[in-house]
Every structure is written in structure tokens, then in C-alpha cells.
């Protein structure tokens, strides 16, 4: 029993990080119908930004977290401005290639600056809580807590603020949004900033939980989060969360049952099966027919 509870907590921690990244994919897909494959690298930059800030001056987590989010949010918006906006009306495959290219550029710049894996300093005095045979570390609570808080915040922004309304409207009809006097480009920039900020936060939390960071850390996790977003229904915020937690749980279950080499095999086979039955993802909707 406590064994299962412990594994559930493990799955929850992993899923929370996937979720934060998956949200970035979903947000951007929502407004531009494009996959920002450089998003995994923004996640990586989140970890490195935190490391850099801590190297300049040791600051507590509650300061470094918002600073990292702002930095990566800004970089996300900058990426859109410099790389994606000029080709917005180009064929979709150009956008995919551009984002893959941007990802590689970001990775290789980081590799050039920091060729070796880096180790994160400990920002938190780690303590563990034991009850009924379950061990939860403060870090796990932090990772899950911060992730959930950020996700609730995002949900609030999307559902109840004028920015959120504009983002949702933009995902329905970009031209119409401009005709109503809303500068679509600014909303798109803000969307990239929001997604980037979440990815940056995920990178920071990941680096705290698993304190070895490298320029290539965003690739696999980025892909996994992307898969989670697709499974949940890309473009759907809640779908991204659901997909991420399903992926986290599947991974933990497959590792506990089979050797670790089977983990991704099992996890992704299962997810592909979901797609066979729900081609638009669990919470995704088929594109609306134009009248």
C-alpha cells in the first residue's frame, strides 16, 4: 500500500514537470497552429538561467523562480519575433523546420558556452517527511506545489482575463481579432512569453530535483512533453495536464514492472493506442468546419 502511494507520488512529480512544458506547446499551438520544437530548449535554458543567476549572486528560490520565468518568457517572445513572425504565412513545414533549427541553435550555443554537464547548487535545505511508511521530500512537494500553482494561474489567465480571452479568440480566428482592434502580434508575443515562462519554471524545478543539467537535457524531455500535449489534445490546456500526468504515470508503472529499456517502448505504444481511439487527443476537438 505505502509502496503504491510512494509510486503515485513519484508519478505525480514527473507528470507535473511534463505538464508545465506541455502547456507551452499547447498554448503556442492554440494561437498559431504551429509546433514550437524549440520549446524543450527553452526548458533547458530555464535550468541554465537559474544556474547563472545563482552563480552571479546566491539568491533564494522565491526570487530566482520569477526572475528565471521572466527571462525565459522574454526569450520565448524574442524567439517568436525573430524567427517565427517573418515566416508566419509560409507553408507549415517551414515553421516546423525553423523551430527545429532554432532548437539546435540554442542547444549548440549552450554547448559551446558550457560543453560539460553542470551541477546545480542546492537552493533548499532538503528535509523529508515520513508518514505511514511513505517518504515525501520537501523538494517533491515544492515541485508539485509550484507546478500546480502555475497551472492554476495560467488557467485563470486564460479563462478570466482579457488577455486570456484574446488568446482564445486568436486561436479561433486571427484575422477577426485584428478587425476588433486587438493587436494580434502582441497577443502572440505574450502567448510565447507565457509558454516560455512556464517552460523556464519547469527547467528550474527539474534542475532542483535532478541537479545535473546539460545542453541536451531539453531534447528528450521536450519530446515527451510534446507527446503528452498531443495525447491530451494539443491546443487544450486541460488536455496538456491530463496527457502529462498520464505519461508520467505510464512511465513509472512500466519501470516498476519491466526493465527500464522497455519504459519508453511501453509508454509510447500505449499513447499511440490512445491516439488510435482519440485521434485529436483525449480532450482535443476536431477542427471546426467553416460555415
Amino acid at each position: 500500500m505505502d509502496y503504491i502511494a510512494q509510486q503515485v507520488i513519484n508519478a505525480f512529480q514527473l507528470g507535473s514537470i511534463y505538464a508545465l512544458i506541455a502547456l507551452g506547446y499547447s498554448l503556442v499551438y492554440g494561437v498559431l497552429s504551429m509546433i514550437n520544437f524549440a520549446h524543450g530548449d527553452l526548458f533547458m535554458l530555464g535550468a541554465f538561467t537559474c544556474l547563472l543567476l545563482e552563480a552571479i549572486v546566491p539568491i533564494p528560490l522565491w526570487i530566482v523562480l520569477p526572475l528565471t520565468m521572466i527571462t525565459i518568457g522574454f526569450l520565448g517572445a524574442l524567439l517568436e519575433r525573430l524567427a517565427y513572425r517573418p515566416i508566419r504565412n509560409a507553408p507549415r513545414v517551414s515553421a516546423i523546420i525553423t523551430s527545429l533549427g532554432c532548437g539546435l541553435i540554442i542547444e549548440n550555443i549552450t554547448l559551446a558556452i558550457s560543453p560539460y554537464p553542470r551541477h546545480m547548487p542546492t537552493l533548499l535545505q532538503n528535509s523529508t517527511i515520513h508518514f505511514y511508511g511513505i517518504t515525501i521530500s520537501f523538494l517533491q512537494i515544492l515541485v508539485v506545489g509550484v507546478s500546480l500553482t502555475l497551472m492554476l494561474l495560467l488557467d485563470f489567465i486564460i479563462r478570466f482575463t482579457s488577455l486570456g480571452m484574446a488568446i482564445r479568440a486568436l486561436s479561433c480566428d486571427r484575422v477577426m481579432v485584428s478587425l476588433l482592434g486587438i493587436p494580434a502580434n502582441r497577443i502572440i508575443s505574450l502567448t510565447f512569453a507565457l509558454g516560455g515562462a512556464l517552460g523556464g519554471a519547469a527547467g528550474l524545478l527539474y534542475a532542483l530535483a535532478y541537479p545535473v543539467i546539460s545542453s541536451s537535457m531539453g531534447i528528450l524531455i521536450g519530446w515527451k512533453a510534446f507527446v503528452a500535449a498531443v495525447i491530451g489534445g494539443i491546443g487544450s490546456i486541460r488536455g496538456a495536464l491530463l496527457g502529462a500526468y498520464i505519461l508520467g504515470t505510464t512511465e513509472v508503472i512500466s519501470v516498476t514492472i519491466l526493465p527500464s529499456t522497455y519504459r519508453d517502448l511501453i509508454a509510447y505504444s500505449l499513447l499511440l493506442i490512445i491516439l488510435v481511439f482519440k485521434p485529436y487527443g483525449i480532450l482535443g476537438e476536431p477542427p471546426l468546419q467553416k460555415v
Binding site: 480571452m165 482564445r168 479568440a169 479561433c172 480566428d173 484575422v175 477577426m176 471546426l288 460555415v291
Partner: peptide
């Protein structure tokens, strides 16, 4: 618009 362009999900 001739083909209605409401934000259908809003």
C-alpha cells in the same frame, strides 16, 4: 463576414 466569423468557442 459572409461566412460568419464568430469566436465559436467563446
Amino acid at each position: 463576414f459572409q461566412n460568419i466569423r464568430l469566436f465559436k468557442q467563446l
